[in-house]
Structures are given as C-alpha cells and as structure tokens.
Design a binder for these strands. Structure first.
Length: 339
DNA sequence: CATCGATGTTGAG
DNA sequence: TCAACCTCGATGG
C-alpha cells in the first residue's frame, strides 16, 4: 500500500480541493450508501492524515475515516488543483513542467539537496505543480497524472465505494479496507490506538513517546516498527530501508536498543517521510543527483537499498541481500551491514 | 489472456 | 496462524 507518505499527500489534496466545499457524496457501488447519505451536501471542514489513516471532517462534527489497505486508491478528476507542497510524477505527453520547485526546505530549515534535481525538463518525469487543470490524478501506491478528455463528471469506473463531487472536482475511492462515518468520540478512540506521526508533530515529546513505547517491547525491532500503535505510518518498504540505513539487524529486540539509536530511527523516519510526502516516491537512498535521481524516480531498484533486492549484492558491502518472513510479511535486509 | 502478488488490516479459528 | 478483503500492475505462456 500506500505507506504513510501517500496518505498525507491525499489529505493535502482534499484540503486544497474540497475543504470549504459542500460536496455531493454518493456510493456508486452501493456498499456505502448509508454512510454517504450521512455526509451528503455537508461542508467539509478538515482533512487530516494520521499514519495510514485519513480523516475528513464534515460540519465540524462527523468524520469520514478511510484506510486504503493494500490496494485502495483515490482518483481525482475534473479541474484538479495540486497542492503546492507536493510533486506528482508521471508520463504526461506534451505536458511541460508547470512550476519550479527549487530546493526543498524541511521544517527544521535544512534543505534537501537531492530534491532540487527535479527542476529539469524530463521526457517522462514531470513535476506537476500549479493552477487547477483538467486532469485525472490517481493517488495510490504510485501516483500519476494524465490528461482527461472525458465529460465531467466522469462515469464511475469499476467499484467506486465513495464519490465526492463538487462543481469542479470529483474524487472516487475504490478498494479501501475501511470507509466509515465516525463521531468525534469514535475518532478519538481510533487515534488512541495510533502511535505518533512525525509528519504531524515532530517534537522531542513525540519522539520520546515513540522511544518509550519501543523500548518497552522485547519484540524484534523489525516487528515493532510495523506496529502502528508504536509509530504510525511505516510499512514494509520503509521498515526494511530504515533498518538498513541504521545498520540494525531486524531481529534485535527493541528493548536492547539504545535510546539514542531509537531516537535516530525516529529522526531518520521523519526525514524519509518528509521526502516521501513531497516527492511521492519512497526514495530511501540519499544523495542521488541528476540522471541517478531521475532513474530513482522511475525504477524501484534504484531508490532502495534492500527492498525487493533479495539475492543481489548489497550496494554498500556486496553481501547478498537476504529475504525472509517476519510477521507474515517479507523482510529484506543485509546481513553484512546490519548487526 | 490468465495468474500472481502487493507498499495492510481484520477477524475467524 | 491464516484467509478474506477486492484492485491492478507485473509476469508468463
């Protein structure tokens, strides 16, 4: 799925295109007709992401909670506005770059240099930022933007669980694991079961919350990082890549890891997440520039250290990358680099 | 064109 | 522990 970064991107798209509007809400597929009727025509007053969950608020009271699960996706259509803080890459024939992103500044004031490579004209790598334009924008595991010549609003394609529709924009949800209307109290209950999310609050206190929860567990750190009640938003890709970057063996019991090392994990996660939100790709190899960076945008193998690279030599030490099962998921790591 | 597998979670057993 | 959820790109014949 979409790990945490995608959900933050989608929430930003809702902020820009729907908050302040009174969308018509329906369930073309029918499986969410009752819930849709509860929020139909009401004003969307907030859009938030916490970990992998998104919450859309209506009339400052009820919330639509959406979890994309492993293959859920949102499709935006119509005159779609792209949030100025995010980039969307995709093949868009004849579509020149609409905006310059320049260097990308992080909340701490530092500048992530490898992002600046985006300001170049690319044949099939396009940075899309700017005014609303007629487009189809898919927000899922892999975001994309295409021209859209269909009439507006488009006929629902496939099983659309929810459609939100304003005069100018349409958002279709398909394949979610969760889609329900909640009261504020019910939302609180969900949030209580979620750990901190550095994209919402990256403070020493929040970092301590993570470190406290993690160091209370003797479970393998590879499992703890996937536990959404410890740290919200990490999935299978970021887990593998974060542990490689930290040089930590995924089997290490969390409670045997230094506080300082756990703090460093939080900091690194905050940084990777930030890049993921901005770029729309899980770029977990640092310092790529120019053609290398462009290649990383297109090819998964070029942006990761270990994920789905089993059997190939580690890019750092040459040891073959290991694949094993951990917690019903595939775990990729380098026995040469991670101890 | 059929089949597989996935960046996730829930809930039955 | 494992199937179900229900989508779709990648893979193979």
């Amino acid at each position: 799925m979409p790990e945490g970064h995608s959900v933050h991107r989608i929430a930003r798209q809702f902020k820009v295109n729907f908050v302040g509007e009174r969308p018509a809400v329906s369930s073309p597929q029918g499986r969410f007709s009752e819930g849709a009727a509860m929020i139909d025509g009401r004003e969307m007053t907030d859009a938030r992401a916490v970990g992998k969950q998104m919450f859309l608020e209506f009339d400052h009271s009820d919330w639509l909670r959406v979890h994309l699960g492993i293959y859920g996706a949102w499709d935006f259509a119509g005159d779609v506005r792209v949030d100025p803080t995010i980039q969307i890459h995709g093949y868009t024939p004849g579509h020149s770059k609409l905006g310059q992103t320049g260097e990308y500044s992080r909340p701490d004031g530092a500048v992530a240099k490898n992002i600046s490579a985006l300001d170049r004209d690319g044949e099939d790598s396009v940075t899309s930022i700017g005014a609303p334009r007629r487009a189809r924008v898919r927000m899922a595991e892999q975001d994309s933007e295409r021209e859209d010549r269909r009439a507006f609003p488009p006929d629902p394609v496939g099983q659309v669980r929810v459609r939100l529709l304003t005069e100018t924009v349409c958002a279709d949800l398909r394949g979610p694991t969760a889609c329900e209307v909640l009261t504020p109290g019910e939302v609180d209950k969900v949030l209580q079961r979620l750990g901190p999310d550095p994209a919402n609050e990256n403070t020493p206190a929040e970092r301590d919350r993570f470190v406290d929860r993690a160091s209370a567990k003797r479970t393998a750190i590879g499992l703890v990082l996937m536990d959404q009640s410890v740290l919200a938003g990490i999935g299978n890709v970021y887990r593998a890549e974060l542990l490689f970057r930290a040089g930590i063996d995924p089997h290490t019991p969390a409670n045997s890891i230094d506080r300082a090392a756990l703090e460093a994990l939080w900091d690194d996660w905050a940084e990777l997440l930030d890049i993921g939100i901005t770029v729309g790709q899980m770029i977990t190899i640092d310092g790529l520039e120019g053609a290398d960076y462009d290649r990383a945008l297109r090819e998964r193998d070029e942006r990761h250290w270990v994920y789905k690279l089993e059997g190939t030599p580690c890019k750092r030490c040459g040891t073959n990358i290991t694949l094993e099962e951990m917690g019903n998921r595939k775990l990729y790591w380098c026995a040469g680099c991670q101890h």
